[in-house]
Design a protein around this nucleic acid. Structure first.
Length: 645
RNA sequence: GGUCCCGUAGCUCAAUGGAUAGAGCAACAGCCUUCUAAGCUGUCGGCUGCAGGUUCGACCCCUGCCGGGAUCACCA
């Protein structure tokens, strides 16, 4: 099937540059793709008389089944050349080869010009990369970005959904940082409102003085337990109420003909809570007292939120994430009114007869949206308008990334649109990193059905799985306990974090607690394992005092080695794409691909017992470089590498 | 109903508009006297939801359908 259009051109003019004695003066690998693009551009123009933008020349790694390192897509030039694709490829190939001394030869397959680079290029690339701890990273670009990646409520502990949110945000912030941005990591804590009041009231009525200290329950869980208890007590009250004469009268007077009693009372629950419930009345009273700064209520609120923060801090610390700036809703929920004032002045907003303030976004495909109630109090979006401005004033960031689930897409579209119309200076730098919800095999997680996967439980479980696996292997049997548990932590969390970050953010993901966090195959531990193998090599290398300087005498480079070199060479471009797309999954998939190639290399080729000293040195150097890049890439996902496993 | 997102192997996920759509899991069959087998190799598995269109070339872009989800609050 290849016979008609498959031929090699290796032999053209080889003699002059065949000698290995004098190393080629090559361009740095980082420049070579650009050099090829320019050469193609010039060649096409010279041959066919039409200008071609060098940056538009498509060049990509040659797929493994074909010979070559990089391939140029020739189809775009076929029309201007008025010749068959393979003829064009041959003509362009010859000219490009003359212009770029690093090209050893080329072949043509169905309109693809496959270029093979001199091994010297790759040896040089390895040498200049292996010592470079910053490989792939870019210098500061002067752009300041705030990433808000956690916005928990303080009435219950964090769950699996928060974990995806946190890991995505953390990873994005690391990727942006690596590509030269200055980062401010922020959290907005929803520390006020009716939810926390429910926990407070519940504790006050039924708590019997329980604290995290005297009960041994982690603070956020303790507060969450009282929230659940409140819901339970409310349900009991509601069930009892339904038996009363008052309930009967309400049902008789208000039910629709088609509604059974059960259906009616199910739908009536909110109304009942707001108008009939004793607990409802008490909790509203508590909220009122909070808003009135009642000292006793504020004290309780501070105490219980304090417990929650201790708990959150523990979970954040377990996940290895941190924040530069915390915002609290209790400080921001009144913000935004000045912006509304300003918007009215500018005529962007308008006031209805009742005094409420609105914006009309129907021309942008949205609806009319309330931004301030008639009584002058804020709604959700008012607050976000205010905090946006406050953040800008606090830090002067050029860009703001909100990591929030996709159920709030509409909210952010509207928010950004309003800020644009108000001509806020930061309005064009806003980005909603929207991600799909995490679902269980049976559907969404439901608090009421008790299917919520708790963050702390999950972390404990993945570490337990790692330990179980490790015990089967027995590899850590000799390792001191402290170091052992540290490695197991890294493996367990590596599995969890990789499992979550490898999925494209926009996609909703199915999380099966039984099966999802594998330790084999396309997983975090698979990648960590390749690092551990490399680490073993490095220790032995240090012990034996091996000199890597003869690596440059290695020849010829084997396909398994070339595959690694090409992958390593892609790394900086992967980071750039990931930063531009706010997409950690690109980095995750790159790391997996690199680890896979390394395992193959390990299996196929001997390292310490290589035939020649140069081969040994080269392979060690290559391994070291792979280890560096894997560590660097996984660090951007928040994954630490164990030394042993 | 309007708007937005997602439909790829039994399952979980990949694939800057480019070559024969790839991995892992599950199932089956192999590979440790050798640098850690959490590894490697092989077999099995597909009308990329359907139908058109644009293009030299479409999983990818456009249109229309069909499924699934989100959202359209003076909740956050």
């Amino acid at each position: 099937m290849f016979s008609a259009n498959f031929y090699f051109c290796h032999s053209f003019g080889r003699a002059a540059r065949k000698s290995r004695d004098t190393p080629l003066t090559t361009a740095h690998m980082s420049d070579i793709l650009q050099k090829i693009q320019e050469a193609v551009s010039h060649s096409v123009t010279a041959l066919y008389g039409e200008p071609v933008d060098a940056s538009k020349v498509q060049i990509s790694p040659t797929p493994p089944d074909f010979t070559g390192d990089y391939s140029v897509v020739i189809f775009p030039f076929v029309k201007m050349a008025k010749k068959a694709p393979d003829v064009v490829a041959g003509e362009v190939g010859n000219l490009v080869r003359e212009k770029v001394s690093e090209i050893k030869g080329f072949n043509i397959v169905k309109g693809f010009l496959n270029l093979e680079l001199e091994d010297a290029c790759w040896r040089n690339f390895l040498q200049e990369t292996v010592g470079n701890a910053h490989y792939g990273r870019r210098p500061a670009n002067g752009i300041k970005v705030m990433v808000e990646y956690s916005s928990p409520n303080t009435n219950k502990p964090l769950h699996l959904g928060h974990i995806r949110n946190i890991l995505l945000g953390w990873s994005c912030s690391k990727i942006l940082e690596a590509t030269g941005h200055e980062i401010v990591r922020s959290q907005i804590v929803n520390d006020r409102g009716v939810a926390i009041c429910k926990s407070m009231l519940s504790w006050k009525k039924f708590g019997e003085g329980k604290t995290p200290e005297n009960s041994g329950v982690k603070g956020d869980h303790l507060v969450g337990d009282f929230y659940v208890l409140f819901e339970k007590k409310t349900k009991e009250e509601y069930d009892a109420w339904q038996e009363t004469d008052a309930a009967r009268q309400v049902y008789e007077a208000q039910h629709k003909p088609t509604q059974t009693e059960a259906v009616f009372f199910k739908e009536f629950k909110n109304k009942w809570f707001n108008e009939y419930s004793t607990l409802g009345t008490e909790v509203r009273e508590m909220l009122r007292k909070w808003e009135a700064n009642d000292p006793e209520t504020i004290d309780l609120w501070k105490k219980m939120n304090g417990w929650v923060y201790q708990g959150f801090d523990q979970t954040y610390s377990d996940l290895g994430v941190s924040f530069d700036k915390l915002y609290y809703e209790s400080n921001t929920y009144l913000l935004g009114k000045d912006i509304v004032e300003d918007g009215l002045k500018k005529g962007v907003l308008f006031k209805k007869e009742d005094g409420s303030v609105w914006i009309d976004l129907t021309d942008a495909g949205y609806d009319q949206k309330l931004v301030l109630r008639a009584d002058g109090t804020s709604v959700y979006i008012t607050q976000d308008l205010g905090t946006a401005k406050m953040r800008y004033e606090d830090f002067g960031c050029d860009r703001f990334v909100y990591v929030v689930a996709d159920e709030q897409n509409y909210h952010f579209q509207v928010l950004f649109e309003i800020l644009k119309r108000l001509e806020e200076p930061y309005a064009n730098g806003l980005y909603h990193l929207s991600y799909g919800l995490v679902e269980l095999p049976g559907g969404r997680m439901k608090t009421r059905e008790g299917t919520v996967v708790d963050a702390d439980d999950l972390i404990t479980e993945v570490i337990r799985l790692a330990e179980e696996q490790s015990n089967e292997q027995g590899a850590l049997a000799e390792v001191p306990e402290e170091q052992r548990s540290e490695n197991l932590r890294k493996v367990g969390l590596g599995a969890l974090k990789f499992f979550i970050t490898k999925v494209h953010p926009k996609k909703k993901m199915i999380f099966n607690p039984e099966e999802s966090v594998d330790l084999q195959g396309q997983t975090g531990p698979y990648i960590q394992y390749s690092y551990v193998r490399i680490n073993g090599l490095m220790q032995r290398m240090a012990k034996e005092g091996i000199d890597l300087s003869i690596a440059n005498a290695y020849d010829p480079i084997q396909p398994q080695e070339k595959a690694l070199l090409i992958a390593l060479h892609e790394y900086p471009a992967v980071l750039l794409s990931a930063a531009e797309a706010y997409d950690p999954s690109l980095v995750a998939n790159f790391c997996y691909d690199l680890a896979k190639k390394y395992h193959k290399f390990w299996h196929d080729l001997s390292i310490f017992s290589a035939d020649h000293a140069a081969a040994k040195a080269f392979r060690l150097q290559l391994s070291k470089c792979v280890g560096q890049v894997l560590q660097s890439g996984m660090d951007l996902l928040g994954v630490d590498m164990p030394e042993r496993m």
